[in-house]
């Protein structure tokens, strides 16, 4: 039976905390970016879109290394944040969350952008003729109509965060109790001869969490479909 050690529980809770924080923090940026990509036309849009999608195609280790270079204690952004706000990302769980957010961002934006693009733009026009300005149009029409896609995007990013390994281990290393997630814990356990049983236990937990996330996503989507079928 599953009998998890304290260290294993720590890794599990840390993983969940990192994934939740990463998803929630990325959410507003994701929604805004998706809306901009879906609705605005501006020079350099293709380049912008490419940069957003970069983490999807770059080797995760490269992304992690770039994060280390920029957000590390001596990196440009990292030193600025530390100097003025006392915020440290390198080798902390917050850094793991940042890595997860960056890695999950393209997936999140993709789902949300599709959702925004599928909204009949004439509904936004109708709202305009009724006196709603750009902000009111966004919050009263676009956002509610894109909500199912936004939720799906969030769950995708969350699931991606649970499995993030390459960028995290490069950026914040593999420190038990601080940055050691389930994935990096399993990796560590496979490197030692007597680690098999513990690795298997964590694997089982991983499967359980993944299944639960899938189930929740399915339920949310079904609920949204129901609501939408009613509203369409």
């Amino acid at each position: 039976m599953l009998h998890l050690s304290a260290a294993e529980w720590t890794a599990i809770f840390l993983t969940l905390r990192i994934a939740v924080v990463a998803t929630l923090c990325a959410l507003p940026f994701g929604v805004f970016t998706a809306f901009v990509l879906a609705r605005w036309e501006f020079p350099g849009k293709m380049l912008f879109n490419g940069i957003i999608h970069l983490p999807l195609v770059l080797p995760p280790v490269v992304t992690g290394y770039l994060l280390l270079l920029s957000f590390g204690r001596r990196g440009m952004i990292g030193s600025f944040l530390y100097h003025y706000f006392g915020i440290v990302f390198a080798f902390r769980w917050t850094g793991a969350a940042l890595a997860c957010a960056v890695m999950g961002f393209p997936l999140m934006v993709r789902a949300m952008r599709l959702s925004f693009e599928s909204i009949d733009q004439r509904l936004e026009h109708a709202a305009g003729t009724l006196g709603a300005g750009p902000f009111a149009r966004f919050f009263l029409v676009s956002l509610p109509l894109a909500l199912p896609g936004i939720i799906v995007g969030g769950i995708l990013a969350f699931a991606r965060s649970l499995g993030e390994f390459g960028a995290t281990i490069t950026f914040v290393s593999n420190i038990p109790g601080e940055t050691q997630t389930i994935s990096s814990a399993i990796y560590t356990l496979t490197q030692v001869p007597e680690g098999d049983a513990a690795a298997l236990r964590l694997t089982a937990v991983s499967i359980a969490i993944a299944l639960a996330a899938l189930l929740v996503s399915e339920l949310v989507q079904r609920g949204a479909e129901k609501r939408f079928a009613r509203a369409k």
Partner: peptide, 21 residues
């Protein structure tokens, strides 16, 4: 003058009612 400040009502070919309201 942007569309939302014109106070001109428009009834479209298809009603374009907000489906979430």
């Amino acid at each position: 003058v942007p569309v939302h400040r014109r106070r001109i009502g428009l009834v479209f070919q298809d009603s374009h009612l907000f489906p979430h309201l």
